[in-house]
Write a protein that binds this DNA or RNA. Structure first.
Length: 482
RNA sequence: GGCGUGUUCGUCUAGCGGCCUAGGACAUCGCCCUCUCAAGGCGAAGAUCACGGGUUCAAAUCCCGUACACGCCA
C-alpha cells in the first residue's frame, strides 16, 4: 500500500505548536514508510484566510526542517500530480460532487437563514432537546423551493445523513469509536455563497488526492463519522484515521497566547533549534517503550510509529524543550553552531569579521548554552569593554595581593612563546607554585580582571582567544583600578 | 444540554492480569568532578496508578458507575 499523508492547515493565523506536531507526525509517518507527504491549504474561509498566514505556515514548516512532496511552492504556485493544492482553486470540484449527491437524492437545498437556525437552536436547548438542525428543509416541496427562490433566498446544501443505526470509526490511535446516527445532523456541505464547508472539502480532497492516512488533531474525531458517511455516499473508501491528542498549556487548558509563545516562529526567535523542536514535539504524545528521550539526525524517522501515540492530552513544557535544545546544541559541529548563532549574534551587534573571530569564541562558549539566544551574552566579553560585576570587583579583585598577581601575570603573558593555551597554563601554574599561591587565588582574579565576571570560559582558553595584547591590556587596566 | 475522548510522580511518559514494595526523562535538592559557569557522574525526594464498585487466586492493567478535564454539535 502506498502511504500518502497530508497536513491541511487553514491559513487563518500562524502555525502553532499543535499544528506543528500534527505536521511532524504526518511527515514522520510518510518518511518512515517511504510514502508521500502532501501539504494542502484549506483557504475556503475567505474572511479569515490571509496570504500572510500562508507564508508564515510555509516558513514555519520549512524552518522545522520538514519538506513536502506535493503542495504549494509559494503563494501563487503549487506542484504535484493532484494540483491545485489551494482549496479556493478547487471550488468546481466540490460543486460537482455536491450536484452528484443532489442528483442521487443524498443532498438537498436548505433555505433556512442564520437567524432561523439560531432561533431553532435556542428553542431546542430550551426544550432540552439536542441542539441539532431539525432537518426541516429535507421535506420541502418543489413549490416551497420555488417560493424561497422567488423571495431571493440562496440555498445552502445539506447532506442527508442516515437516521438509524450507528457509524463506527476505526481509529488507529483510539480504537473503535461508535456514534449513533440519529444524533448526526444533516451537515451543510455547500454554503449559500457556493463554497464548500470544511467537512466536505476535506473528504473530497483527501479522496481525490489519494490520501491513505489522515493524521489530525483530536478535535476532528467528532466530525469523522459524518465524513465517513459522505465517503460512503460518494462511493469512496475512506482513508485510515488517526486522531492525535491535544496539546495543553501549563494550567491544563487549551494552549493559547496567554501561556506564552505558541507559534513555531516565536520559538525560532527565542533561539530553539529545529531539531530540538522536532525531538520534543515528537515525544509530546508519542513515546517508545524504552522511554528514550533524545533523537538525533534521522533517528526519529526510523523509530516513529503510530502505535506509540498517546490518547490523553499533553501539557507543553518549555523547560524540558529548553533542556533538549541544549543537548542538540552540543551535538552541532562548530560550523553549524556558528551558522545557527549568527542571526542572534547579529541581533546583539556582533557581526563579523571581528577580533577574536566569532567562530573561536562561539566554539568556546556555545556548548554551555541552552538557547542560541544565550550565546551573544556569553561571547560579548571578548568584544565589549570590560564591565565589572559587583561580585567580580568587590568579591574577587579587591583583595590584598591581587594587584600584584595581575601585574605579574601580565608580564608573564607578554613573554609567553608560543602564545597558546597549553603554554599559558604551564607558565601560570608554575607562577602559582613559585609564589606558593593556591591556583584559585590566581585563577579567579584573572578571570574577573579579563572578563569582569566571575563565570565564563575556561581561563586559559579565554586568554589565548582574547589574544596577547587585549589580555595584557585588560590585566593592567584592572590592576590600575586597585 | 447531547454525543465523543481522556484521567500513572509538578510535567512528558513506561506499563497491555503475576517480573510493580510502579521504571525512565525534565524540573527540584544533595554529593562528586572542577580554574568559574555549564556539561557529566552518583544519590535523594516525589505517584494511596482520579474516585467507588465489581470480575479474578491475583488488577495501574479487564468490566460497570461517578467525578473532573477537554473536544464536537456551535
Amino acid at each position: 500500500m502506498t502511504i500518502r499523508t497530508r497536513f491541511a492547515p487553514s491559513p487563518t493565523g500562524y502555525l502553532h505548536i499543535g499544528g506543528a506536531r500534527t505536521t511532524l507526525y504526518n511527515w514522520l509517518f510518510a518518511r518512515r514508510h517511504k510514502g508521500t507527504f502532501v501539504l494542502r491549504i484549506e483557504d475556503t474561509d475567505e474572511v479569515r484566510s490571509t496570504e500572510d498566514s500562508v507564508t508564515a505556515i510555509l516558513d514555519s514548516i520549512r524552518w522545522l526542517g520538514l519538506d513536502w512532496d506535493e503542495g504549494p511552492v509559494d503563494l501563487a504556485a503549487d506542484r504535484g500530480p493532484y494540483a491545485p493544492y489551494y482549496q479556493m482553486k478547487r471550488l468546481e470540484l466540490y460543486q460537482k460532487h455536491v450536484r452528484g449527491l443532489a442528483d442521487a437524492g443524498k443532498a438537498y437545498p436548505c433555505y433556512c437563514t442564520r437567524e432561523e437556525l439560531d432561533a431553532m437552536r435556542k428553542e431546542a436547548v430550551a426544550a432540552k432537546r439536542p441542539a441539532v438542525y431539525d432537518e426541516r428543509c429535507r421535506r420541502l416541496t418543489d413549490r416551497q423551493k420555488a417560493e424561497h427562490e422567488a423571495a431571493g433566498r440562496r440555498p445552502s446544501w445539506r447532506f442527508h445523513m442516515p437516521e438509524t443505526g450507528e457509524t463506527v470509526v476505526d481509529d488507529m490511535i483510539r480504537g473503535r469509536v461508535a456514534f449513533d446516527n440519529a444524533l448526526l445532523p444533516d451537515l451543510v456541505i455547500q454554503k449559500a455563497a457556493g463554497g464548500p464547508t470544511y467537512n466536505f472539502a476535506c473528504v473530497v480532497d483527501d479522496h481525490c488526492m489519494e490520501i491513505s492516512h489522515v493524521i489530525r488533531g483530536d478535535e476532528h474525531l467528532s466530525n469523522t463519522p459524518s465524513q465517513a458517511r459522505i465517503y460512503e455516499a460518494l462511493g469512496w473508501t475512506p482513508p485510515k484515521f488517526a486522531h492525535l491528542s491535544m496539546i495543553l498549556g501549563p494550567d491544563g487548558s487549551k494552549l493559547s497566547k496567554r501561556h506564552g509563545a505558541t507559534s513555531v516562529l516565536e520559538y525560532k526567535a527565542l533561539g530553539f533549534l529545529p531539531e530540538a523542536m522536532r525531538n520534543y514535539l515528537g515525544l509530546l504524545g508519542w513515546s517508545t517503550t524504552d522511554s528514550r528521550q533524545l533523537f538525533f539526525g534521522t533517528e526519529l524517522v526510523e523509530a516513529f510509529d503510530l502505535a506509540g501515540c498517546q490518547k490523553n492530552p499533553a501539557i507543553f513544557d518549555q523547560t524540558k524543550l529548553t533542556w533538549m535544545n541544549g543537548e542538540h546544541l552540543r551535538k552541532l559541529s562548530r560550523q553549524d553552531l556558528l551558522e545557527h548563532a549568527e542571526p542572534f549574534l547579529k541581533n546583539a551587534g556582533l557581526t563579523g569579521p571581528l577580533d577574536p573571530p566569532l567562530d573561536r569564541t562561539v566554539a568556546l562558549e556555545g556548548e554551555k548554552c541552552k538557547l542560541l539566544a544565550d550565546i551573544p551574552g556569553r561571547v560579548e566579553i571578548f568584544y565589549k569593554d570590560v564591565v565589572f560585576t559587583p561580585k567580580a570587583l568587590d568579591g574577587v579583585l579587591k583583595k590584598p595581593g591581587v594587584k600584584e598577581i595581575l601585574l605579574d601575570v601580565a608580564g608573564l603573558l607578554e613573554g609567553a612563546e608560543p602564545y597558546a593555551e597549553k603554554v599559558l597554563e604551564e607558565r601560570i601554574r608554575a607562577y602559582c607554585e613559585a609564589k606558593a599561591l593556591k591556583t584559585g587565588q590566581v585563577f579567579h582574579p584573572l578571570r574577573a580582571a579579563l572578563s569582569g565576571r566571575t563565570e565564563g570560559p575556561t581561563l586559559f582558553g579565554m586568554i589565548e582567544v582574547l589574544g596577547r595584547s587585549k589580555s595584557v591590556g585588560r590585566l593592567k587596566a584592572a590592576a590600575a583600578l586597585l
